[in-house]
């Protein structure tokens, strides 16, 4: 079953310069997809469009076989959740529990059910001890963990991470990435769309979508993108260290064709001596 299908989507803020130019894509249920590209390539706009946060005039978006329009808007929003970049600007409740509950209040969930859900999801993201804490007493990583709880508590089919780790320190970042991985194992049907500049994260996803100036340039397995020197140079992309190292070693005359990890490459070097 398709999770998200987009056909020929065009969008512009001012009606003149399009941010997205005829974007089409199709994602399977349970895929972990990374969208990469420079700032201004239209990645975040695409995410907002899927959530129906921006009105578009041309193209179609289909989520869970349901077309995005005024009538289906709330139904679709209940199935798609997003975690934004800035931990502060998405913390709506006064405390951790209020913030998680905000998502549920919007679904008009009975209070008793809410109380247990809030506890359940706070403990899933390791924030059970912080239920009554206000955001000013939390670190960026903790706030983003709460944001993930507020997203997942609505039981979405699709989770969008819009540069969710880019404002965090290395501890916070790895906290969030491992949390997302754990959630994915718990719920394999969850489709994850990660908009990211973190090339190592993209390298580990199922599929990579490269965007440039409002268009999708390439959709493929990560390894195929990073093998493609020409594209890497053309779009001035950063490559994962292992890919970069392979290239350098190849230039030095090593045979690296079937070596894909640092361990394999290392072994090759010290054995060749």
């Amino acid at each position: 079953m398709k999770s998200v299908e987009i056909k020929d989507l065009t969008y512009s803020y001012n009606g003149v310069d399009p941010i997205l130019k005829g974007v089409s894509l199709s994602l399977d249920k349970g895929e972990y997809v990374s969208i990469v590209g420079h700032n201004g390539s239209g990645k975040s706009t695409l995410a907002k469009l899927i959530l129906g946060l921006l009105p578009f005039s041309k193209g179609t978006i289909i989520v869970n076989d349901l077309e995005l329009n005024k009538k289906n808007l709330q139904t679709i929003r209940n199935k798609v959740a997003i975690v934004f970049q800035n931990p502060d600007n998405q913390f709506i409740g006064a405390t951790v529990e209020d913030d998680i509950a905000f998502s549920l209040e919007n679904m008009n969930m009975p209070r008793e059910e809410m109380i247990s859900k809030v506890k359940e999801y706070a403990s899933k993201v390791g924030m059970l001890d912080y239920l009554t804490k206000e955001p000013s007493y939390l670190s960026g990583g903790q706030k983003q963990r709460v944001a993930i709880a507020t997203a997942l508590v609505r039981n979405p089919d699709i989770l969008i991470l819009d540069e969710s780790t880019s404002m965090l320190d290395p501890n916070g970042k790895s906290e969030i990435l491992s949390l997302v991985r754990r959630m994915k194992i718990e719920n394999p049907n969850l489709t994850i769309i990660s908009i990211t500049h973190d090339i190592e994260e993209a390298y580990n996803s199922d599929k990579i979508i490269l965007m440039h100036k409002g268009e999708i340039v390439l959709t493929c397995k990560p390894i195929e993108l990073f093998k493609n020197r020409e594209l890497i140079n053309k779009y001035n992309l950063k490559v994962p260290f292992v890919v970069e190292l392979k290239k350098k070693l190849q230039e030095l005359g090593y045979n690296v064709t079937d070596k894909n990890t640092l361990e394999e490459l290392g072994e090759m070097i010290w054995q060749s001596k």
Partner: peptide, 26 residues
């Protein structure tokens, strides 16, 4: 810019000012 992000975050989490909402705090 904060308020813009905030309103996006609220809408994305299904907030509808005219919709029926339950209450966590009583």
């Amino acid at each position: 810019s904060r308020s813009e992000e905030l309103s996006n975050a609220m809408e994305a989490r299904g907030y509808d000012p005219y919709g029926k909402r339950s209450r966590y705090r009583i």
